[in-house]
Amino acid sequence: MVHVFQYKERYYIFDTGSSSLHECDEKAALLLRKKLGEDVDISSVSEAERREYEEDFAQLEKDGLLFKEETKVYPAKSDEVKALCLHICHDCNLRCKYCFADEGAYHSAREFMSLETAKRAIDFLIENSGNRKILETDFFGGEPLMNFDVVKQTVYYAKERAAAKGKKFLFTLTTNGLLLKDDIAQFLNEEMENVVLSLDGRKEVHDAVRKTANGKGSFDLVIDNIKNFVKIRGDKHYYVRGTFTKKNTDFAKDVLFIADNGFDSISMEPVVTDIEDLAITKEELPAIFKEYDALCDEYLKRYAEGKGFHFFHFNVDLEGGPCLAKRVSACGAGNEYFSVVPNGDIYPCHQFAGDPAFKMGSVYEGKLDEKIRKQFKESCLFTRKKCDGCFAKFICSGGCSANNYHFNGDINDPYEITCAMMRKRTENAMHILAEKKRLSQNEER
């Protein structure tokens, strides 16, 4: 399919079959939309211009960059496990209102993972990773730093086991920052390939939802820890990761607040919750779209001034990104990625943790429920029928299985609200890609 869209005074054509992005003028966009069956007035385009544009369209089509037929080849998925999310601690020292993990407890008892269970999880990953050399483990919670000693010992154990097998681990950890200081910060900086630091932006926004157990805001308790950590981080990976809700649909201000505080790697996610006064509904979408545009403009302005920052969802690589086989494979949860909860039970991913219907086994048994695994293994872009007519399908690969299930009752039934935001961010990201190229070409002249 072909998607024609406009960003302010720019016009773009995205060909989904070839994953090619083109820039054109208003008349070309009009003609193409007419060609696609839209009811548009093309009287402003002269006959001579029309012939010229048609020649351009024909050349692009001949080059396989326009109206290219989309692949319908179902992906061949391997049984190799790539990554585990270790719920090292089902407890938390904060009580964030929107936490999908039920304030750390995942709808069960507050519990810490033992070192023995963590070691069994590492063994499970190594034993099920086939010929794969690089393995990934994310320390998650709850707040994983409440069980820091097990994090540390697990890292040492995994490195030792991997070295003996000719493999290598990449570790990541997500923290709210409360305990991120001194030896802990030093260890994470040395051992973690990526560290995700939770901060929602402006103090009043952060404090309204991210509260301590006694109900006080946590901004002042974490901001210096996070700043100090990023200072020692140097050029190693980190993300300052925020959540926005219905209450701060002006989240661009929060992203820019984070950037203004010296953080240059930022992700800001729409909340996943069914709490009515926080959940995003279709009523908020126009304001959210406007906000993504405002963020896009400021992002480019700062980039042009040499003061740019990295925003996770504006990063779409059409040239060197994933191959087509990967783009149609869906997210990998339940087949190549699993989460392990403190007692060793295995779930398709962190967002399914604690749901008995999705318990796939235990690291102590070492085998997986093949019926559930088959369900996830067979799920791909083509089993998500709603995606057929969507231009962003090869970017998002059918969305989040957990969101689909929690909102629509089926991992193959994409959730419309997140789809709408995904499409918007994709258009912004494509505009950014074009503008960055334009800027670098201008610099070369």
Partner: peptide, 16 residues
């Protein structure tokens, strides 16, 4: 081909 400019894939191994 001067009105339409191509802005941006390069020419399943599972290494990702």
């Amino acid at each position: 081909m001067n009105k339409i400019k191509t802005v941006a894939p390069a020419d399943g191994c599972g290494e990702c």
